[in-house]
Structures are given as structure tokens and as C-alpha cells.
Computed example of a mutant assay.
Amino acid sequence: MATRSDQRTPAGASTAQPARQSITPELRDWIAEQASAGCSPAALRQSLRAAGWDDDVAAQALADALQAPTSNSPEAHHRAPPLAVPAPLLADSPPFLDAGDRQVGVLLTLAQPRLVVFANLLAPEECDALIAAAAPRMARSLTVATQTGGDEINDDRTSDGMFFQRGESPLIQRIEERIARLLNWPIENGEGLQVLHYGPGAEYKPHYDYFDPAEPGTPTIVRRGGQRVGTLVMYLNTPEKGGGTIFPDVQVEVAPQRGNAVFFSYERPDPSTRTLHGGAPVIAGDKWIATKWLREREFI
């Protein structure tokens, strides 16, 4: 059986240009062996990148190798059981959903990953008000440090951001109530609304929003409300060029349009959810978004 010491020598590793790289059966077997030995997807991805694999190819290789294990495979036995997730009421393919104080359009739905693109979730004046309230409080965005359970600066995330407290103002309370009704998820299970600003060239490279169970800091993080089970990204403006929300595993890009939003859920902290996503670089203009992360329990 492969061990963690094998991480630096992935099968088929190459320093070839991305266009020439291919995902071989040997590479998939190596990934599966490393996963069964206890390596996390994040560690495996880093090893592939260090060995010369393009990041998009590495992400696809991980998805291919880990997304559909058989019931007798080691990955299946190590995989966490599914969690309840937020879910808009889409059984009858409605063109609009009732969000309480607003009718929200449904533009696109995917089953795997579970992804929905909404139209007009926010009014133009609400977008402007969120930007105005957030702008004086912006600072370099941090990411969760899964090694420690704290926060850290991450070179993959080149934006500025801030958090509103849940229910901090009438505007925030109104939007949170709308989200809770739209996604059928308790308002208290949501983290505070985060506003992010991306200038020209800024991006957030592909990542997962759930907390990796194999990382030492995860038990500390999930004490506040359990795992993350859903993400809602709301677009507060329309950039001139670039800045889309990308899902590399399924080759989907959601264009940022003011007032619209993209929602996706993940029933387990595992690449099989195919929720790898990122913020593509802003090419011209800038991008403002508001993100709502949803937990499995009350977030305190």
C-alpha cells in the first residue's frame, strides 16, 4: 500500500506544458492509493502541483479518481456520511421562487454538483447599499487556516473583504431572511455575510468551501456550527470583463451580473461533490460580491 511518503512522486508526473498533460490510469491509481493511506485531497493536490501538474489538470484528476468509488473501495469506507443541505424548492421546475419579500428568478440548475443560478436576488439599491456599508471596513481577505483553526493570508486569494455580523442592520437582516426562505435553511445556521472586492487582476484560485476532516484545525473550526454545507455568492456589480465564478470539475462559468447569485451545496466534505470552484481573474473594471456560507447547525 502506498504511504504518505510517496506523495512527492505521483505516477506519471511531468513538467510538460498543461496542454500536453493527460490523466492516465496510473495517475488515478496513485491518487486512490494515497487517499486510502489517509492523504487529504488538499495534500494530494499540492503534491501534484509540486510535481509539475497544471492546477486544473490536478483538480480534474482528483475528481476523476475520488468522485465515484465503489462500495468496496477504501475511499468509500473513509467517506463521511451525507449531511442535510439547504435546498431551494425546484421539484416543479419553477421559473421563479418566493423569497418572502421578493420573487427570485431561476436561470440554471445542475444536479451534480447541486448548483442553481438565481436572477434578481438583490435589488440594485441593495447592491449599492451593501457596497457603501462595506467599503470603509475592507481589509486584505483571509482564508481559514485548516492547520490551526484560525485565519491566514493566502496567495491564492487576492481580494479585500469584510464580514457583517448576522442581523447587524435592517438591510442585512432583510437579506438574510430572504436567503433563509429561498434556500429553506434556518437563518441562525448562516455565517455572517461577507463582502469581497476584486480589483483588476485579482482572483481566488479553485478551492473547496467545506473544511477538510483530515486537517488538524478542522475540529476547532466546526465547533461553531458544524460543517459548511452550502454557499451563496451574490454579485453586487457587473465587471467590465472577467471575474466569473468557475467550476472546473464540470466546466461551468457563471457570469457575474449585478443582483444575480449562484448557489451550490455539498452534502459531505469530499471532492465527490464536484464543488471545486474559484473566482476567475478580473480583466477590466472591478468586482464586488457578497458571500453567505451555510453551516449544518447554528453558527455561534
Rank of each mutant, 00 (worst) to 15 (best):
D6Q: 00
T9Y: 12
A11G: 11
A13Q: 06
S14G: 10
S14V: 13
T15D: 09
A16W: 01
Q21N: 10
Q21Y: 01
E26H: 10
D29M: 05
W30K: 04
W30N: 06
G38A: 08
G38C: 04
A43V: 12
L44C: 01
R45P: 02
S47N: 00
R49A: 11
R49W: 01
A58N: 03
Q60C: 03
D64I: 12
Q67V: 00
N72Q: 14
P74Q: 09
P74V: 01
E75M: 14
E75I: 15
P81D: 10
P81S: 11
A84N: 14
A84F: 12
V85E: 00
P86H: 04
P86S: 01
L90S: 12
S93N: 15
P94L: 14
F96A: 12
A99G: 10
G105Y: 07
V106R: 03
L107Y: 03
L108F: 11
L108Y: 09
T109K: 06
L110M: 13
L110F: 04
P113Y: 07
F118E: 03
L122M: 07
E125N: 10
E126F: 08
D128W: 03
D128C: 00
A129H: 06
A132P: 04
P136V: 06
M138T: 09
A139V: 12
S141W: 07
T143R: 13
V144E: 00
G149M: 08
G150L: 09
E152S: 14
D155C: 00
R157L: 09
R157G: 05
D160Q: 13
Q165A: 15
G167D: 08
E168D: 13
P170F: 08
P170T: 10
P170K: 09
L171W: 03
L171A: 05
Q173D: 15
I175L: 14
E176Y: 01
E177Y: 06
R178T: 10
I179V: 15
L182S: 03
L182D: 02
L183E: 03
L183A: 04
P186L: 02
P186Q: 06
N189L: 04
N189S: 06
G190P: 02
L193S: 02
G199L: 10
P200D: 06
E203W: 00
K205D: 12
K205E: 14
Y208N: 10
D212E: 15
D212H: 06
P213A: 05
P213N: 07
V222R: 10
G225T: 02
G226S: 04
G226C: 09
Q227D: 12
Q227E: 14
R228K: 12
R228Q: 02
R228P: 05
R228E: 02
G230S: 05
G230A: 13
T231K: 08
T231F: 04
L232R: 06
L232M: 11
V233P: 03
Y235D: 05
Y235C: 06
T238N: 09
K241D: 13
G242P: 03
P248A: 07
V250K: 09
V252Y: 11
V252W: 09
A255P: 04
A255H: 11
P256F: 06
A261K: 01
Y266C: 03
R268V: 01
D270H: 11
P271F: 08
T273M: 14
T273W: 02
G279A: 12
K287S: 03
W288H: 09
F299C: 14
